[in-house]
Design a protein around this nucleic acid. Sequence first.
RNA 1: GCUCCAUUAGCAUAGUGGCUAGUGCAUUCGACUUUCCAUCGAAAGACAAGGGUUCAAUUCCCUUAUGGAGUACCA
Length: 509
Amino acid sequence: MSNKVRVRFAPSPTGPLHIGGVRTALFNYLFAKKHQGTFILRIEDTDQNRYVEGAENYIIESLQWLHLPFDEGPTIGGNYGPYRQSERKDIYKKYIDQLLHSGNAYYAFDTPEQLDFHRKSHEAKGETFIYNWHNRLQLENSLSLTTEEVKKRIDSGKKYVIRFKSPENETLILNDIIRGEIKIDTHVLDDKILFKSDGMPTYHLANIVDDHLMEISHVIRGEEWLPSLALHVLLYRAFGWGAPEFAHLPLILKPQGKGKLSKRDGDKMGFPVFPLAWKTEESISRGYREDGYFPEAVVNMLALLGWNEGDGTEKEIYSLEELIKAFSLEHVSKAGAKFNPDKTKWFNQQYLQQKSDDELAEMFQLILNKKLENSHLVKNDKEYVKRVIALLKERATFVSDFWPLGSFFFIAPTSYDEKSVRKQWKETTTQVMKELITVLKSAEDFSSSSIENVVKDWITTKEIGFGKVMQPLRISLVGALQGPHLFDIMEIIGKDETILRIEKAIDKL
RNA sequence: GCUCCAUUAGCAUAGUGGCUAGUGCAUUCGACUUUCCAUCGAAAGACAAGGGUUCAAUUCCCUUAUGGAGUACCA
């Protein structure tokens, strides 16, 4: 085995990729790139019953969207292929035979019904049924049956599985990069099924064989695999292979309460748990991409879920390149990381602030085109859009925010916020607004600062009071008491439009 | 039940055998803006409990509590 870093992300194509899976992919990617290693995508489709059409494409598209390209994998190939386990069936056959011959595995004929019966009856007595050294001789397998009987059963086409013969009494010391040493007694291990009766290997066998053949140097996976680590290490030993190093990532926990993050949490609290939207006949699950998140923000958020650069750094915004540089498995925390949808939004906001007005204008234009079917103001004036964005940017989190934040730059208000009107539009207001129109009409220079001077002078000399002018004016132009600096708005929409809107407000209110 | 893993403020985390335990989000209050927005400033808030080891423990060890994961012919 070479000492080059080779890691794999090995999802099952059973549906859309969960955000936890994406984080696992990300950590694998970061670790690989940090060490100039290879990032491999391997599709673990040994369970034919759970296979979902389109899931593999979904996985690949997700990685593409997040800019986490794999170096080897399905569709692009590599020197260690094939990269779908369903296409590696013959390989597993060969290796399970090896285990059978060396006495590390055995045939078992117990039917699912029989096993189920055992489990149930044990449960009734408050015990757990474990298929291992303490009872394997009482069950139907090639250890308890005669050689002839075993042969007879196999020849007659009776279904069987192949189980691992786990050692009876031994204390294993396992090593995890994140957790350190883990001790486990083999007498509590059960004889896991390695080969299913449908001729496919289970995850346990397939992942060891593939990791070995693909020369995987580090296995970085979710914490849910920790209980299987002993089995896997034992398997490497049974094959006589050196084992890769292991790192088990902490779980991603739901925002409130306990337990790991599930799709339901997202639905309930209104945030996506998938990178991309996923449509089935029954429902649509939202995705970060469709919800308007930037891939960089999602990556950044995910990277900080269970990892921190350490050394008291206060840095939170990392580009992918910076993450690669800073990442290390030693700084991955052991405790589960609670998912925080608000923080995710915050990251998106940070990234939005970093983008240029130009870039944002281009993205916003797409939304604008749909909204502005019959606007009299502007349709495709990029400069205009850019000026608007410059004003709105700092209060936006998503590109889609620009519309609710600043639709009045494109369409005159069609209605006025009732509460604001009630509070700010007094009887005298109409008269004040009429005078204001005269003042504005006289303004030659309609730039923000110069209108501001003119209006302020007028207010002071007439002793009207700022609020009495500015608030109704805002209502006239915006339709509500919100938006950026009023004089900036006036400059952008222009003199004519400004006066038009005030007249309209006087008329309507 | 059994096995394994975890536990710093509401949340995410940093950090250390010994001075006031650092940061971000959220919260509260101020400033600015006559916008319950944004920005800026400030405040409040934590080492799960008990026992050791030690001159000294949030930091090392044990127990308890709490939580999580696994316990499938699923991955």
